[in-house]
């Protein structure tokens, strides 16, 4: 690891001024950044510790929404009463991620900006367009069992690994960003970018911006929601496929549906096609499967991950069925 300067920012103004210097990086929980520094994937000159910023609260807003400070630890967010009762899929998504120790460290902002787990990205000996634009992509034709089935390109097939973000995508969350230039808000859906021919551009954040908060809208349908993560071992593994789902059913008819998938793309994948296929239909197994198929029509497999398309279909169907039968209890 390269020697670096360490700065602890006590307020947002100092933090955004400090990040404007070249070679500076924010340090949240450090559970991703420090690993990448050890692997020499990230080599910042200055690390700005933002964990003392006063952005560590979860607040209910007058308009019925919820504002989550960017430095709220993943564990705290998952345990928060408002999240557990009004947005259970979000609490569940976080609790399926990483381990207890990591969640105690990990921050909401850091979780949104965590990097891909593509093995070639993490190995400097490999070719990777994301690390080094134009170098090539060793995952194509290599180990890509956990690569994307949506939105991949010839230059990159990596996925975004976050569980939390999948729920945030389903919940229509908003990200608040701040820099010396001011404050702006972006929808989380679309914040992460598909690789196209520039996989090095991963999100819409500018190099000098700080994530200050995530906001959830008031969303009654979310009270009946679930997160289902399918992975290679019972815990402490990234998703092969995950599903965040919310469903409102009246007299057997689906009146509202929210669906997002994880482990399938460079962004948390909001399943609009499936949502459309569900709306107004009967809350039956056939309809759930039909909706899954509608979404997966556009899926494309790499050499080792064709199973994910089948798995995603089954996981969507099973999650909706379970939601319908058992409600949101995890």
């Amino acid at each position: 690891m390269k020697d670096f300067a360490y700065v602890s920012a006590q307020d947002v103004a100092t933090a955004v001024r400090a990040i404007a210097e070249p070679g500076a990086k924010f340090l949240g929980g450090g559970t991703n950044l420090v690993d990448l520094m050890r692997q020499n994937i990230e080599r910042p000159d200055t690390v700005i510790d933002i964990t003392r910023l006063p952005l560590d609260r979860v607040e209910e807003l007058p308009d019925g929404g919820v504002r989550i400070g960017a430095l709220v630890r993943n564990s705290h967010l998952a345990a928060h009463r408002v999240i557990r009762t009004r947005y259970p899929m979000l609490a569940q998504a976080i609790l399926t991620g990483a381990s207890g120790q990591l969640r105690n460290m990990a921050t909401v902002g850091g979780n949104v900006l965590q990097r891909t787990r593509c093995p070639y990205f993490a190995d400097l000996a490999a070719r990777c367009n994301k690390r080094e634009p134009g170098a090539g992509c060793d995952a194509i034709g290599g180990f890509n069992r956990n690569a994307a089935i949506f939105g991949a390109s010839d230059s990159c097939v990596a996925t975004h690994p976050s569980d939390m973000c999948v729920a945030l995508a389903a919940l229509d969350a908003t990200i608040e960003l701040e820099s010396v230039r001011g404050v702006r808000r972006l929808p989380l859906v679309g914040f992460h970018m598909l690789p196209g021919d520039s996989p090095q551009h991963e999100t819409a954040i500018a190099a000098d911006e700080l994530i200050t908060a995530i906001e959830l809208p008031e969303l009654p349908v979310a009270a009946r929601s679930r997160y289902r993560k399918v992975r290679d071992r019972a815990s402490y593994a990234f998703a092969l496929v995950s599903v965040a789902a919310a469903l409102e059913v009246r007299d057997g008819v689906i009146t509202e549906a929210r669906l997002a998938l994880g482990g399938v793309a460079a962004r948390p994948w909001r399943a609009h096609a499936a949502e459309r296929a569900l709306m107004g239909g009967p809350a039956t197994e056939e309809r759930f499967r039909l909706a899954a198929d509608a979404e997966l029509e556009g899926a494309v497999a790499q050499s080792q991950n064709a199973f994910k398309i089948e798995l995603a279909g089954r996981a969507i169907t099973a999650t909706l069925r379970q939601l319908q039968v058992e409600g949101s209890a995890a």
Partner: peptide, 24 residues
Amino acid sequence: LVDPRNGRIMNAGLAEYHVPVHAD
């Protein structure tokens, strides 16, 4: 996971090389 193209182990760490966890 040994990449047959160059003989390199591609999961040389415990996040990627899975051993059972307690829950297993």
